[in-house]
Structure formats: structure tokens, C-alpha cells
């Protein structure tokens, strides 16, 4: 479903070349639920933006659902759902319901299918109480649920989430996690999720990838991850050791 082959992206910053992502290769099969970890500035967001076609890779190839994102961006958009935790993809001044209606037109979802999906999402994400409220007035938890619904109205095969639980309280986090778990289990949606919250990883992800300094530092199951430091039982410790380990390498 997602394939990267020696993909890289560099930026010119004051005449010197900075490699945000370098020689990154991995494959994600349909139906997988993958956690994507890395310290700040490691290249997580750059990877995600290459997957959506927002950024064009400067080397290597990227394929998502068989398409090259930067060339087939608008075609791919119908098959991929994207959520940025730090900023909403909804329209700030419009009520949530109007945002959804716009999305229906942008994605050309027919009216009946849209109604069915929206009803379902309204129930599972519990949107009913604030669907008429302008997005700017929503709480962070409400907004995130709205963003999730917006990313799923066109029933994408792949869902990419960039820090979806950032800043949420315990209850909201649990709700989002349950929802994602069911989405992956029942509909078989492939999910790639970046996070700094290792609770997300422990509860959701069968597979973990860790990126540091733009390169893959670890790729395996949660069990493999824990096995890299047999003397530790706390995932926070294990991961921070991996960060510092690759950081000094």
C-alpha cells in the first residue's frame, strides 16, 4: 500500500543543503497499523508530506496505493485520508456540518453514501452535539474528532495521522484510540500514525518504525522493539535509549 525506495528530501537553508529525510526505504502492506516514531525534527512530517504529495521527493521514489504522490496528487487524494494534529484541515469559520458538505463536493461523494457515512461517523465519534458549531469554537478534542470524520468521509484505503492525540485529555485520547482500532480491524483501513505519545503505540500498533536524523533507525514489531533493551520494561526508556543511541552514532 505504501512503498518508499531510497526516498529523500533535502532543503536549501541559507545556501547549505539540509537532508530532512535521506535514503528512506520501507513497505507497508494493506491493513497494517504502523506507528512512526522519532524525536522532533527527525523527518516524520516530511515523510508524511511526501506520502500525500505535498512535498516532492528530491531523490528516490514514493508510491502510495500504486500512485506516485507528487505527480498524481489529486487522484491519490481520493484514496488517502490525512489528519494533522497540530492544525485543522477544516474551514475555521464554517460550522462542522458545512465543512463536511464542502468535502462531499470536493470528493464527489454521492448524497446517499455521504448521508450513511456521516451518520455512522456522527455516532461512532459522537459528533452530534457540536456539528452545527463553527470550527473555531470547538474544543481540541471535538475538533480532532471532526478532523477524523472529515478525513474518512470519502472512505480512504489509507489513513495518515500526524500526531492525532497531541494535547488531548485522557478521555478524548481513549475515544480516538478505540475508534482507530475498530476502523483498522473492521474496515481493514491501512493506518500510519506519528506520535510522541507512546501509549498510542502500545495500544494500537503492531509494527513500529523509528526515524532519526532522516533515516530509519528501527523497524519491527512492538515485541522486537522491547527486545532491543532486555533490561528495560518501560517503553519510554527503550525508545529514549534508541533516540540517544542513534543520535550519537
Amino acid at each position: 500500500m505504501i512503498e518508499l525506495d531510497r526516498a529523500g528530501r533535502s532543503f536549501k537553508v541559507r545556501r547549505s543543503l539540509v537532508h530532512a529525510v535521506r535514503d528512506l526505504s520501507f513497505t507497508i502492506a494493506p491493513g497494517e497499523f504502523v506507528g512512526y516514531l522519532g524525536p522532533n525534527g527527525a523527518g516524520k512530517s516530511t515523510t508524511i508530506k511526501m506520502l500525500c504529495g505535498i512535498l516532492t521527493p528530491t531523490s528516490g521514489t514514493v508510491r502510495v496505493a500504486g500512485l506516485e504522490p507528487s505527480r498524481r496528487r489529486t487522484t491519490l487524494a481520493r484514496r488517502i485520508g490525512v489528519v494533522f494534529g497540530q492544525r485543522t484541515t477544516l474551514w475555521w469559520d464554517l460550522p462542522l456540518a458545512d465543512s463536511f458538505e464542502l468535502i462531499r463536493h470536493l470528493y464527489k461523494v454521492d448524497r446517499n453514501t455521504f448521508r450513511t457515512r456521516l451518520d455512522e461517523l456522527t455516532t461512532t465519534l459522537d459528533l452530534g452535539s457540536f456539528i452545527r458549531t463553527p470550527v473555531r469554537q470547538l474544543s481540541l478534542g471535538q475538533r480532532m474528532r471532526g478532523d477524523l470524520a472529515a478525513a474518512l468521509l470519502h472512505a480512504p484505503d489509507v489513513l495518515v495521522l500526524d500526531e492525532p492525540t497531541i494535547g488531548l485529555d485522557v478521555v478524548s485520547k481513549a475515544g480516538i484510540r478505540d475508534f482507530l482500532k475498530r476502523l483498522n480491524a473492521e474496515r481493514g483501513t491501512t493506518v500510519l500514525l506519528t506520535t510522541h505519545d507512546l501509549g498510542d503505540i502500545e495500544r494500537l500498533c503492531r509494527r513500529v518504525m523509528l526515524i532519526d536524523h532522516g533515516q530509519l533507525a528501527f523497524d519491527g514489531t512492538l515485541g522486537d522493539l522491547m527486545a532491543t533493551a532486555p533490561d528495560q520494561s518501560d517503553i519510554e526508556e527503550v525508545v529514549s535509549r534508541l533516540y540517544t543511541g542513534s543520535g550519537t552514532a
Binding site: 505535498i54 489529486t74 481520493r78 488517502i80 494533522f84 470536493l106 464527489k108
Partner: peptide, 22 residues
């Protein structure tokens, strides 16, 4: 403002989205 990304994740030309934005 970092809001340009949003136009690029939609299946419609960014030009059309920007000209109608607000």
C-alpha cells in the same frame, strides 16, 4: 500560517480551492 498543506490534500486543483477560499 501553515494552512497551505490543506489545499494539497484535496482531490481538486489547488487553484480552484484558493480562488474560492473565503
Amino acid at each position: 500560517a501553515g494552512t497551505f498543506d490543506t489545499f494539497l490534500i484535496r482531490p481538486v486543483s489547488s487553484w480552484l480551492q484558493l480562488t474560492t477560499d473565503r
